[in-house]
Design a protein around this nucleic acid. Structure first.
Lengths: 193, 193
DNA sequence: TTCATTTATTATCATAGATCAATGGAAGGA
DNA sequence: TCCTTCCATTGATCTATGATAATAAATGAA
């Protein structure tokens, strides 16, 4: 249960055995069945989640009712609406399990306590957020400078496993295009080969 | 010189007088004339900059030679290619002064030293990066769900001062549209009123 | 002030991707 | 197994924005 968790934590910072014991006590195990929600629009994001097993998506729904996927998270990844988590404002996002999931959750108050006891974790989360920022910036610039086909090809190369596990229409939503357009792109690509 | 800097630092964390003296010694004053570069594509990003006075843009140039603006920074803002700064990989971005600027720069080694001495700063930068992430996520989702006109109107509302100080074609580049399209949008908006 | 350069506007035409609609497959529940 | 629902594909339009080009306006240097 905690193997992957420990591995990910110690990739960027070093923590003692004792510290890890404390960390373990503050994270809560949680199972989520496929299609269940960890967070729903309008609710306050109470948890930051580490994914032990399974896959989830964070998405929002616009005024026309169209879904836009902000991110997928797989084993070893982290999930939360950080804005809502830190401000206690209602979230605009939904977090939904795409498969049966095992998660480790931490509340805001446990989080504060934890950082008080283990300041090194502050760095860990900064790096996490920073990597996320860099990836999001690249995605934004990519959406400006690349065609839908280029973005799709890049996505398959970067996250081949993720693309496998997720229905096409969610890939389309992640790329900011319609499922019809993605379908056309795919058929064009298969002709090219 | 350090007034705004001190104000911004103490907005999110508390630091002692003594600590602030240390911080001051590690930031270097730098003037940049309009059109000068703090960072050029291919170079390693050696500094994280705080903007005391003036305005700058971070942008990249795609294969077709088109510029895409990642962000503007004004008084009180921070600038760097974080990826390059932390990995020492060559940057894909340019950072250019749009006006005569006064900056406070810190190098990576000073930064490491500083965080060692004042761990609370780790939190400060996490919050900074986190706010940037939230803003970038919103911009990304906005580019999926809103028309160019909607995005432009929103931008004027959010950063009216910034839009004033910057030429139209850079606003267009920031929005991911051409200057011609922005021009059309503006003339349509002026008719509507 | 004048000239050169940069920036903004406007018009026309081209196109990537959206929208609407119909069909065929695949998957999950009874 | 059948049936329902969801998902992917394909075709026929439509539309927002891009590309190109010409001109006008603004800016800055001499």
């Amino acid at each position: 249960m905690f193997d992957l968790f420990h591995k990910k934590l110690t990739e960027n910072i070093s923590i003692t055995e004792e510290q890890f014991e404390l960390i373990k006590t503050l994270f809560v195990k949680k199972k989520l069945a496929k299609q269940q929600f960890l967070l729903q629009e309008g609710d306050i994001c109470r948890y930051t989640a580490f994914v032990v097993k399974g896959m989830l998506r964070t998405y929002s729904v616009d005024e026309k009712g169209v879904e836009h996927i902000l991110q997928f998270a797989q084993e070893g990844g982290w999930l939360a609406d950080l804005y809502s988590f830190f401000t206690n404002e209602p979230s605009h996002f939904n977090i939904e399990a795409l498969e049966d999931c095992q998660l480790l959750l931490i509340t805001r108050s446990s989080w504060d306590l934890l950082l008080e006891k283990i300041p090194a974790l502050e760095r860990f989360f900064r790096i996490l957020v920073q990597n996320n920022l860099v990836a999001t910036q690249r995605r934004l610039i990519g959406s400006f400078s690349e065609s839908a086909e280029e973005q799709y090809v890049k996505l398959i190369k970067m996250y081949p496993d993720c693309v496998q596990r997720v229905p096409q229409y969610m890939i389309a939503s992640y790329l900011g295009i319609t499922r019809e357009t993605l379908s056309r792109i795919r058929s064009q690509l298969s002709v090219k080969k």
